[in-house]
Nucleic acid binder design. Structure first.
Lengths: 152, 152
DNA sequence: ATCCGTGCAAATACTTTGCATTTAC
DNA sequence: GTAAATGCAAAGTATTTGCACGGAT
């Protein structure tokens, strides 16, 4: 495991403990998988598959319940692209946002500094507090663009 | 029916015809419901209920198939908030965007002119073509904010 | 008359829930 | 030891699909 990965796992562990939750084997496994994909969006199916390879099978209900708990204490968020299953990602690295291609799912990272002015505008003008973690922007990348004439 | 509503319905009808699709009774009913809620996001369940009141029952599979067709020709889009059922909305009025409160669902409209600079930035810098219709921004309104310390 | 669209029923996909057992603390 | 978390099984929602019939063009 990479160094950065390890420190992310440790941060998750201590956040779980601080929240008064128990650090069980399924939870450790899920943390490890999330940390190994800290830039990505994972479905529950992908998480289960990945956990199975590294730590043996866990039940999907356990995964859903664990992810809900992690969301409750603010470690993860989930988002839906189109009609696909929900995708989960860590909220620790919140110095960027995601531009997600609806066709090929390619994700481009944008530094938060480039879009913060807009969020500040929403806050000041509309008293609206943007959820930076839920805020994935959908559209199309250059390659996939031509097929979708209706988009910007 | 209001005047603006009527003209929206007519626009939808002619777009359907132009696309080579047939203008059936269920499709007319769905167009009417969408036009009557042109600022909103409707679930299939809400559409079915509303259609039932105005034009009699239609099957949910018909609604899903019709909405998929309308999406294909660019008249509607759908989006998921959290784990809720997908919500559909018209794309005709695309001069604004939506700030949606994740807690109470309150929606604030933002003129496109206020956020266009950011989309242009995405296009110029990242070759990313934002889908203006999918682009609903999640967060919390002033009233619901305090319960969610993790958000911006 | 043709073929697209509909309704019905069944299937599928995703997620949630109840409960007895196991495990972390 | 105690309460929380897990696994299993079943249920609940949301959505999709196959097919025979009916309606729009």
């Amino acid at each position: 495991m990479e160094k950065h990965e390890t420190s992310v796992v440790e941060a998750l562990h201590s956040a779980i403990r601080s929240a008064g939750l128990r650090l069980t084997l399924p939870r450790r496994a899920i943390c490890r998988v999330l940390a190994a994909n800290s830039e990505g969006f994972l479905t529950v199916a992908q998480i289960l598959e990945s956990v199975e390879q590294s730590a043996g099978q866990i039940d999907s209900s356990t995964a859903y319940r664990t992810l809900d708990e992690l969301a409750r204490i603010g470690l993860v968020h989930h988002i839906h692209f189109g009609n696909q299953p929900g995708k989960w990602h860590l909220t620790l690295d919140n110095d960027h946002q995601h531009l997600v291609c609806e066709t090929c799912q390619k994700t481009t990272l944008v530094p938060l500094t480039e879009i913060a002015p807009m969020f500040n505008h929403f806050r000041d003008t509309y008293q609206f507090h943007t959820n930076l973690h839920h805020f994935a922007i959908l559209g199309h990348c250059e390659d996939c663009k031509p097929r979708y004439p209706h988009d910007a």
